[in-house]
């Protein structure tokens, strides 16, 4: 039997020899997930801000809904969007199924509730005086919002990292909506699923290592950034 260590050595070789097929997959993964995060973040943070700073009817219900949406499995999101985007579905005319755009859409749906919930928790714990101080010093509401986001930046970066972590490693909706097409919609998680089904564990482990390194790197970076924030408070 091929040992884990042998597969791991081969994985490291593949990674550092610049295996182009492997790096294409890694590139697709990052480009799709980063775009999904960029599209989702502004609206998510604005939503979180409205939920944290203003009271309006249905606010509590919305907070509960976003917290519940956190635990929706990726496959359910994938299936729902699949039905919507399929030729026979209501959005079939967009012809988005099995494209990167469909994957991005799925990942937006997955990270949006997480971003809202975490940004909401962060913004809720910010000092209300910051908002009022900005306004009384003549800032417009938009400018005051930006000031609040700056004050809460460490928590918000944490939310973004968590959101990115959720979508970069997500296989269910990417597989369903992207279709795992080589050089187009095959990202790290779907490639791992495929390599495993083919029995080529080395490629799977190599890709798994990328995810692991990335998680490690992001967490260390986040720790650094938030550590900085803690000192000056």
């Amino acid at each position: 039997m091929e040992t884990l260590s042998a597969a791991s050595y081969q994985a490291l070789y593949l990674l550092f020899s610049g295996d182009s097929a492997l790096w294409t997959i890694i590139g697709i993964s990052f480009s799709v997930s980063v775009r999904a995060l960029i599209y989702a973040a502004p609206l998510a943070i604005l939503t979180a801000f409205l939920l944290a700073y203003f009271s309006f009817p249905g606010r509590r219900l919305l907070v509960s809904i976003f917290n519940t949406a956190l635990s929706i499995p990726a496959v359910v999101v994938g299936l729902t969007l699949y039905i919507m985007l399929s030729k026979a579905g209501p959005l079939g005319e967009w012809r988005l199924l099995f494209t990167q755009d469909a994957m991005i859409l799925g990942q937006i749906c997955l990270c949006f509730p997480l971003l809202v919930a975490m940004a909401h928790a962060t913004l809720q714990s910010t000092d209300r005086r910051a908002w009022e101080t900005a306004l009384t010093l003549g800032a417009s509401p938009v400018r005051a919002l930006l000031t609040i986001l700056h004050e809460a930046r460490f928590g918000l970066i944490g939310a973004l990292v968590a959101g990115f972590g959720r979508i970069i490693a997500e296989v269910g909706s990417s597989m369903m909506l992207g279709g795992n097409i080589l050089n187009y919609t095959r990202n790290i998680p779907t490639a791992i699923a495929l390599e495993t089904s083919k029995g080529s564990f080395a490629e799977g482990i190599a890709l798994g290592m990328v995810l692991l390194f990335m998680a490690l790197f992001l967490n260390i970076a986040l720790g650094q950034v938030q550590g900085k924030g803690a000192v000056s408070q």
Binding site: D127, R129, A130, E132, T133, H150, S232
Partner: peptide, 9 residues
């Protein structure tokens, strides 16, 4: 000005 004023980071 708040009782304990808020200074931005």
């Amino acid at each position: 000005l708040h009782q304990q004023p808020y200074l931005f980071d």
